[in-house]
């Protein structure tokens, strides 16, 4: 892809890094919260459900603003993290956090649907055979929801790649630091003569999104066939 300028290339790589970390780090809590919402009745369930979905319905700039309040070096959580030497505001890590928060509802939704599709009777059967709750989850529930987890992860990755509003509000638009693909496209459109570069980056964006979608569809179909499959 020599037709990308070094700074374009930098934005693409940064986006992949940010979206990759955002997806990987939000997977474990995503699976846990999806499981809790799908299977457990607990006080505050509606509140948890609401909080998870909040980024989906809030203006992204508001989400970014709330992250800034919480995670800025003088913010409540930011101050604590600063003591550990971790800075989020205006760094790529902050961009990953913003992307993760914005993508989280989509991930939880996909995984929750997959968990709800697993017949609890199978989990009961496993428990009567001697499997503790954790074993049941690891050997029955988890293998059966792999297609859902994959779908959730890919959707979250695509969403993280495209995140704009919360990112620019929380970590600003610093080339090489926090300037992800969408931010780079936006910046190119602000300068005279940047249209060609913007178009190239947009093409990369479309290609990555479509590619991710196709790969996930293919994988999910393969895994679903293996789970329900006839012989072997």
């Amino acid at each position: 892809m020599s037709w990308l300028s070094p700074s374009d290339w930098q934005a693409v790589l940064l986006s992949l890094k940010v979206a990759g970390w955002a997806t990987a780090l939000s997977l474990p809590p995503g699976v846990f919260i999806a499981y809790a919402l799908a299977r457990w009745q607990f006080p505050g369930r509606a509140v948890v459900n609401g909080l998870v979905h909040l980024p989906l319905i809030l203006p992204p700039v508001v989400t970014g603003y709330l992250l800034l309040i919480g995670f800025a070096p003088n913010g409540v959580i930011g101050a604590a993290l600063a003591k550990l030497g971790i800075t989020l505001a205006f760094t790529w890590r902050g961009a990953a956090l913003a992307a993760a928060v914005m993508a989280f509802p989509l991930m939880v939704r996909a995984i929750r649907l997959a968990i709800e599709a697993v017949d609890p009777k199978l989990e009961q059967a496993a428990s009567t055979l001697g499997a503790s709750r954790l074993w049941v989850f690891g050997t029955i529930t988890l293998p059966l929801i792999v297609p859902g987890i994959l779908a959730g992860a890919i959707t979250a990755f695509a969403k993280a790649m495209g995140e704009f509003g919360a990112t620019i509000t929380f970590v600003s638009n610093i080339p090489g630091q926090t300037q992800t693909l969408p931010l780079a496209i936006y910046s190119q459109l602000q300068v005279p003569g940047g249209e060609a570069s913007a178009a190239r980056l947009a093409a990369v964006s479309v290609t990555l999104a479509l590619g991710a979608l196709l790969v996930s569809e293919w994988l999910a179909r393969r895994i679903a066939a293996r789970i329900a499959g006839g012989r072997g």
């Binding site: 017949d119 496993a126 059966l144």
Partner: peptide, 13 residues
Amino acid sequence: VGYVFQDARLFPH
């Protein structure tokens, strides 16, 4: 207790 269910409940995967 070994439980044999009416609907077998074999693990499909």
